[in-house]
């Protein structure tokens, strides 16, 4: 068993410790922002009763305490899964975040389901022709894909599809959803449509998901291309591969069964980290394609000076990063017998 309980516990504790740091940092930075959240929470009161109302709101939000106590209180809340109340939405931040997380994750999963296999495939192709001009071209392509501004690529995809008469906008057609009685259950619309055996909504949602997913997929495609190219090319130089070739094992089998197998753990590790960071790309592309999701919350947090929502977003993004990285390490350990955690 390459994976020990001891490691998992340690890893979890470490993640919690890092999360505490994130919470303290974000709370302290954002609480410094000008403008009084208590005034907003009280609903911008005016007239004679205003002062009292603001005072009450300040108490309600816990803003009357000294900073270190506020941070401590907030930490306690966060560790129990409570992120406070959003000023913009007047709902628990946790609920607002989880409701929107599914939309963003759906996009992210779609992008990685496209990008990682495609990139790895191209990478292996390049490794098999290493040194040649195809290899050089593919490697440059990989660099270019990883160097493309995602928001700009999203706009370009959008504009091209648009002039082709296909405006990919939003997540699902409102009219269609209403007409077929579509209900959001998990928030992953493709899954929801499948569960309800709602084919029109499924295909509609899929058609709207693919274009933004392509834009988000550029980075993982480029990354996996370069990485699998390097790892597979390395592996192909190993003695055991040479031996296998000498034994007359088929070329296809050598590449996929030995070389790619050896590259897989490294690929999983790097793709995992990239997956965590691509959450941000997905948020930006959502904005470009007018989809609901975490991206919109970013703007709401600014528009309403909603510091609770902003802290919530920071904590969520960091927690996502930590969770994905832990999972990637675990997955790597499960695949790679050399790694022991």
């Amino acid at each position: 068993m390459p994976l020990s309980l001891n490691y998992l516990v340690k890893r979890l504790l470490w993640s919690v410790a890092v999360l505490v740091g994130v919470v303290v940092f974000s709370y302290v930075v954002i609480i410094l922002s000008p403008g009084d959240p208590a005034v907003k929470w009280a609903g911008n009161p005016r007239g004679p009763g205003a002062a009292k109302a603001v005072e009450e709101a300040r108490r309600e939000l816990g803003l009357d305490l000294p900073l270190h106590l506020q941070v401590l209180n907030f930490l306690k809340m966060v560790l129990t899964g409570d992120l406070g109340y959003s000023i913009a939405y007047r709902q628990p931040v946790f609920a607002v975040l989880t409701r929107n997380l599914a939309a963003t994750l759906e996009l992210l999963f779609a992008a990685y389901l496209i990008g990682v296999p495609l990139g790895s495939l191209l990478g292996v192709a390049a490794a098999m022709r290493r040194g040649g001009s195809v290899d050089g071209l593919l490697q440059t392509l990989g660099l270019a894909l990883a160097s493309t501004p995602t928001f700009w690529l999203g706009m370009a995809v959008f504009a091209v599809l648009f002039s082709a008469g296909f405006p990919a906008y939003g997540r699902v057609s409102t009219g269609l959803a209403l007409a077929t009685g579509f209900q959001a259950i998990t928030g992953f619309y493709l899954l929801d449509a499948l569960l309800q055996l709602n084919a029109p909504v499924f295909f509609d949602a899929l058609a709207r998901l693919l274009p933004p997913a392509l834009a988000v997929a550029a980075y993982p495609t480029g990354l996996c291309l370069r990485l699998s190219r390097a790892l597979v090319a390395d592996a192909l130089l190993e003695e055991y591969v040479r031996a296998a070739v000498a034994w007359g094992v088929k070329r296809r089998v050598v590449v996929w069964k030995y070389a790619f197998r050896a590259a897989l753990p490294g690929l999983v590790q790097v793709a995992g980290t990239a997956f965590a960071y691509s959450l941000i790309d997905a948020m930006v592309v959502e904005y470009v394609f007018g989809r609901e999701g975490l991206g919109r919350l970013l703007f709401d947090a600014i528009a309403f000076s909603d510091f609770k929502l902003a802290v919530g977003l920071l904590v969520l993004v960091a927690a996502f990063y930590l969770a994905v990285n832990t999972l990637a390490d675990v997955a790597q350990a499960l695949i790679d017998p050399r790694v022991r955690l």
Partner: peptide, 24 residues
């Protein structure tokens, strides 16, 4: 190492969000 880990978990975009709220 701990400090580095904390900031590794925070992408620039969300730090910018926090700073945008605090500093304009």
């Amino acid at each position: 190492n701990y400090a580095a880990e904390v900031f590794l978990a925070l992408p620039a975009m969300v730090i910018a969000l926090a700073l945008r709220l605090a500093l304009g």
